[in-house]
Design a protein around this nucleic acid. Structure first.
Lengths: 163, 163
DNA sequence: CCGAGTGAGTTCTGAAACGAAACCCACTTG
DNA sequence: CAAGTGGGTTTCGTTTCAGAACTCACTCGG
């Protein structure tokens, strides 16, 4: 009971941090330049207690930094740390997917290449093959153990050790 | 109440679909080749009812397809649709971030370039500038309506909403 | 034919998270 | 000094979650 039956993989840890609707929306808003509590609140339509909670979690997770921008009535703003900025590939990929596959909603502001202001592309690059490629050329690499039997031939429902 | 005060952006819609811990973990497992209910269950350590729910949602959202692989006791398996495969850039980005920024967990099986079996890179490409670049060169582009003022200097309030 | 096994789910639970609205407080502005 | 503001916290009712146990339909081995 005290050991680790869960994978506790790095992805799992990360998802506990940003693997929810609001956190990702908050990071996107931050990328757009939003920094203050009430602005997040108004922009996202998020309930205040939830925002408090998410901001705290993102700060603890090192994605946002809470900085005092005014002394006397102490006021804070939240801005992305380098680690937070490093999330943007994931965000961009999600936004791109959303624009292609979700129907109905409005697309929201595009993210562009800062120097030239135009939209950019995102892709995979294999330096071994010196080629770019898309999602369909991905597969899972070495994996120690596929749990039970590795790949049961489909439609072989019963498979006891008849020996 | 019946209109849409919320943005209802495409990203928002997408996050309602895959914006939670389990959904993303399920997609990763599917990319690794897992297809059957019990295998997902064992691999992820997810509770059955939650898995049922997530699978149904992903199928409804067009990310997984439910296919019968055996007639008599009707058995189904879940495999990624093209739209599901198209999520992999987001997944890869998340995994990469996780491996760099999460500490403690084990990294999990790598995703590799199928033809050569080696790890690959992910990046941004601006075709206008004909250059690759990283997350720090991104900014938000044109936005039809910046909500309120873009960057308030300080204390210049406006709040005509219900209070 | 009987009993064990399997794959894919369902019901029941109690715990946690969410959302809305109200409240708080240290200040600033008119 | 009253009214605002920015940045929260409290309270409370509702929805969703996660886990254990149970069901169902079928197959297999003896």
């Amino acid at each position: 009971m005290a050991d680790t039956p869960r994978p506790a993989s790095t992805l799992d840890q990360t998802l506990r941090l940003v693997g929810d609707r609001w956190s990702i929306l908050i990071v996107r808003a931050a990328l757009r330049g939003i920094r203050r509590f009430d602005d997040f609140c108004a922009d996202l339509g998020i309930a205040r207690p939830v925002l408090t909670n998410r901001l705290r979690r993102l700060v603890d997770g090192g994605i946002l930094a809470r900085e005092r921008y005014q002394e006397h009535p102490p006021r804070y703003e939240y801005r992305l740390t380098p680690a937070g900025v490093a999330l943007s590939p994931a965000l961009v990929a999600l936004i791109r997917w959303a624009e292609q596959h979700a129907d109905g909603g409005e697309p929201g502001p595009a993210l562009v290449h800062a120097p030239c202001g135009t939209e950019f592309e995102q892709g995979f690059w294999c330096r071994t093959c010196a080629t770019t490629f898309g999602p369909s050329a991905i597969r899972a690499g070495a994996h120690r153990a596929a749990r039970r039997r590795a790949t049961p031939p489909r439609a072989a429902p019963r498979r006891a050790a008849t020996r």
